[in-house]
């Protein structure tokens, strides 16, 4: 039996509830991206917030913070069978509780810890790599992360820009964080932001580029090392790596 759900964390947790209290399943997939196999029987599980809350509370009660965040981060990853991996991991974790932390080398646990780390690392990366443009009334940043990390950035930036209005736009998934005076929410976002930049914005962009070029020591040039830290896929929206100075980034 394969459970399908709507892609939300609540939906996934409802599947886990059904796995324990209804019928055991062998895999969980998001309905939109599920790739049907010949002999697999599927069932769509409707999201039920009562059921998901119960599972969520059980996770908070029984798991360490470390385990909980790795599970949640893995859920946000872009890996096709992450939900099935999580199912395998949760079965062990609900059995052993806090002792799961000591079982790193079990494959089911290790996979989740590994992917969770990757997602956490990408979040950390974008805390530094996001670039905002001052569009007059608000700050705007565009990015294309591999994993669905946008919700992990909200708290950091809404605290940092407490008296600003800002938008962080995940172009690939067409969603955005709208932040205003310390509050924020994630929403669908399809607007195309216009590129009429203020003189001041262009000036500071050029100033930043000058600074970036001057701060490197020529005698120590090491482009390979630079690329280890900042792979080319992340450079598209960065001014210092050639993004267009006159357009919004």
């Amino acid at each position: 039996m394969i459970y399908l759900y709507d892609g939300q964390f609540d939906g996934f947790l409802t599947c886990i509830y059904h796995h324990y209290y209804d019928e055991k399943c062998d895999g969980i997939y998001e309905e939109k991206t599920y790739d049907p196999k010949l002999f697999e029987i599927t069932r769509f599980i409707k999201t039920d917030s009562d059921k998901s809350t119960k599972v969520h509370q059980a996770m908070l009660d029984q798991f360490s913070e470390y385990m909980y965040f790795n599970i949640y981060h893995t859920f946000l990853s872009n890996i096709y069978d992450k939900d099935t991996m999580l199912l395998n991991c949760l079965e062990i974790a609900f059995k052993h509780g806090l002792a799961t932390d000591r079982m790193r080398t079990l494959d089911a646990i290790f996979q989740v810890l590994k992917i969770g780390r990757q997602v956490g690392f990408e979040k950390h990366r974008f805390m530094g790599l996001l670039r905002f443009s001052d569009l007059g009334h608000y700050l705007y940043a565009r990015f294309e992360p591999d994993h669905n990390i946008i919700s992990l950035l909200g708290e950091h930036f809404s605290d940092r820009f407490r008296e600003e209005k800002f938008i962080i736009h995940d172009v690939r998934r067409a969603i955005a964080i709208i932040g205003h005076k310390g509050q924020w929410l994630v929403t669908d976002f399809n607007h195309i932001v216009d590129d009429n930049l203020l003189d001041e914005e262009i000036f500071f962009r050029k100033l930043w580029q000058t600074y970036f070029d001057k701060i490197a020591i020529e005698d120590r040039t090491n482009l390979k090392l630079q690329q280890n830290f900042i792979p080319k896929k992340y450079r598209k929206h960065l001014l210092e790596f050639g993004a267009n100075t006159n357009k919004s980034i």
Binding site: G128, F212, T221, N222, Q226
Partner: peptide
């Protein structure tokens, strides 16, 4: 938090 890396890898 690191924000970028210059050509010398720093």
């Amino acid at each position: 938090i690191c924000h970028t890396w210059s050509a010398d890898g720093r």
